Simulated scan of single mutants.
Amino acid sequence: MTIAIPRHPFPTGDAEAGLAVLREEAQELIDGLEADSTELGDTQRITLTLAQSRCLLDPRASVFPTWDAWVNAMQVSSVVFAAATTTEEHVQCRIAHKDRTLRATGPQWYVNPGAWLSAFYLAVVCREKERITALCQVPISLLRENGSCFDEYHYAWLDTLQTYWLGGPDLVPKLVAAVDGTDAAVATDSETAGKLLYPPMEMFHRFIRKDQDGFNKALTNALQWHKQYWSEEERAFEISGLVALAPLAMACIAHDAGMPIEIESEYLPAVLIKRNWCGEFPT
């Protein structure tokens, strides 16, 4: 039985005009990266915002411009870490259908666990195995170098995902450490930790146990908490709430492993889960 979880109300009246502005801003930032690759942080933020915004009017991600926006966000997010970790002066990459040469950046303010998790989720959604592997080889120590204040569970969750993908040891203890860190008694922002950060961890837990029913229950809870979090008055009109990015990535992993996804929601673009667009053009 399929469960439907509708998205919280979100105005669509000026959506097309807003998308046009975002598209222009994203393209300007992308085209400026070869001159100043330290703009990668802002470019990642804007391209991800555009990808999520596309799903306001296209919640299934069924039209090409939506997929194109998601690929652009994935490409930029991956290059953030390629440019930060390369030992060469430049890094070669492909962004928005064009091969580009960017200068190495080393550690930057935006090279942090939050940006890494977004990059990982986007690469999973786009089924970019080589990029996922490259991201999983990023040293966790690099993400601590910019002085950003992240709770330890961010690093533990990141470590869990890297360990899973690369087949490393101590996967379960790392996952337990990540889950324990989201507890309200220790998390700096207990609401965000409990409603947004913990749910994909529980989904992953059910996935590695091959617990199909438990996974779908965890996915249902994740989307309900996502809706509750983004329905709050001060957040209700934020683009970040349109797609549940982390649960979407976990659903893609589960789908590719043969688990049926029994939840339908505008927070969870169905065409992205089913990988219908993958291979549409060189990435």
Rank of each mutant, 00 (worst) to 15 (best):
residue 37 S to L: 12
residue 26 A to Y: 04
residue 52 Q to M: 09
residue 173 P to G: 06
residue 264 E to W: 01
residue 191 E to V: 08
residue 198 Y to I: 07
residue 193 A to M: 03
residue 23 R to G: 09
residue 200 P to Q: 13
residue 109 W to P: 07
residue 84 A to L: 07
residue 22 L to P: 01
residue 126 C to W: 02
residue 210 K to W: 12
residue 248 L to C: 10
residue 250 M to T: 14
residue 114 G to P: 06
residue 20 A to F: 11
residue 244 A to R: 04
residue 53 S to V: 00
residue 73 A to G: 06
residue 129 K to E: 06
residue 54 R to L: 03
residue 173 P to A: 08
residue 3 I to N: 01
residue 113 P to T: 05
residue 165 W to K: 06
residue 46 I to G: 04
residue 41 G to V: 13
residue 61 A to Q: 01
residue 95 I to M: 12
residue 62 S to V: 00
residue 141 S to Q: 00
residue 96 A to S: 12
residue 168 G to P: 04
residue 23 R to P: 11
residue 96 A to V: 04
residue 209 R to A: 10
residue 148 S to N: 13
residue 222 A to Q: 00
residue 72 N to C: 11
residue 163 T to C: 11
residue 105 T to A: 02
residue 269 P to A: 08
residue 86 T to H: 12
residue 12 T to C: 09
residue 80 V to G: 09
residue 222 A to G: 00
residue 189 D to E: 15
residue 149 C to E: 14
residue 59 P to V: 11
residue 274 K to P: 07
residue 60 R to S: 01
residue 126 C to P: 11
residue 146 N to S: 14
residue 119 A to W: 13
residue 97 H to Q: 10
residue 78 S to Q: 10
residue 128 E to N: 12
residue 233 E to C: 11
residue 269 P to H: 07
residue 49 T to W: 00
residue 272 L to E: 10
residue 7 R to F: 03
residue 206 R to E: 11
residue 52 Q to P: 02
residue 194 G to M: 08
residue 213 D to F: 12
